[in-house]
């Protein structure tokens, strides 16, 4: 398969924090690719470098070495500055799902999805119809006007997923999406992500420490002490 066919390409990605004797290598020489429609897990214990890897791919953290390519566009490379707006790249190409849903507390469920669309310059009416469509497809049609405080953990996370999917991103990055959920809700969320990866043809990269949650994933990368130690 041609390299440009990958949604995510990570090549020798290294992130080092600090200088001199206090340097900490958070992630070292990570190399992998994720195809569109693929559901991939980065599995490892706390402090193993999972989130650092995710932030580097998510254009939040600039890697020290290595290269990151998202949907064919180089977004990070050693000694190279991208000639485009990274925020725009995040808006258009990436979707984020967080550990604790991170819904905006003063916006209703529908508004939480609409905000991501309006930031991406969709008109109010377009944003509203797309948000209704997304939330309804995630069985939240009856919760459109509820604030996050009135939603259950599972419902809130589904709204967060709807927000991540709002702009039809090529890549969805999920940081411990089941950490705040019970096992059953966690499994439901993972199943939903798998379904969405296939339906939307999006590459979904999930960071988790919970091996029980990665059943049915297309690929699983084991991370330990900043290195990818295995793939299954």
């Amino acid at each position: 398969m041609d390299k440009s066919m990958y949604a995510i390409e990570v090549d020798n990605l290294t992130k080092i924090y600090g200088k001199g004797e206090t340097t900490v290598t958070a992630i070292a020489d990570a190399t992998f690719q994720v195809k569109p429609g693929e559901l991939v897990a980065i599995l490892g214990p706390s402090g193993s470098g999972k989130t650092t890897l995710l932030t580097a791919i998510g254009l939040i953290n600039e890697p020290t070495h290595g290269k990151v390519v998202i949907d064919g566009a180089v977004v990070a490379d050693e000694g190279w500055t991208p000639g485009f707006d990274l925020k725009r790249m995040r808006r258009e190409k990436l979707g984020f799902i967080f550990q604790a849903h991170n819904l905006i507390p003063f916006l209703s469920a529908i508004e939480n999805v609409m905000v991501a669309l309006e930031i991406n310059h969709l008109s109010r009416s377009e944003a509203k119809s797309r948000a209704i469509e997304l939330l309804t497809s995630l069985n939240l049609g009856h919760r459109l006007n509820n604030f996050p405080s009135a939603l259950s953990g599972g419902e809130a996370q589904r709204v967060a997923i709807a927000r991540a999917l709002a702009n039809k991103p090529k890549v969805i990055l999920a940081d411990e999406p089941t950490a705040a959920l019970d096992t059953e809700n966690g499994k439901n969320v993972m199943a939903l992500l798998k379904k969405l990866a296939v339906e939307n043809h999006s590459a979904i990269l999930v960071v988790t420490h919970d091996h029980r949650m990665v059943e049915g994933f297309d690929r699983i990368f084991q991370v330990s002490d900043g290195r990818i130690t295995g793939e299954s």
Partner: peptide, 16 residues
């Protein structure tokens, strides 16, 4: 802070 960080992460412009 968390709301602002989330907005930035999903690509909100500073002007928002």
């Amino acid at each position: 802070i968390k709301v602002i960080a989330t907005l930035k992460l999903i690509g909100a412009q500073n002007r928002v």
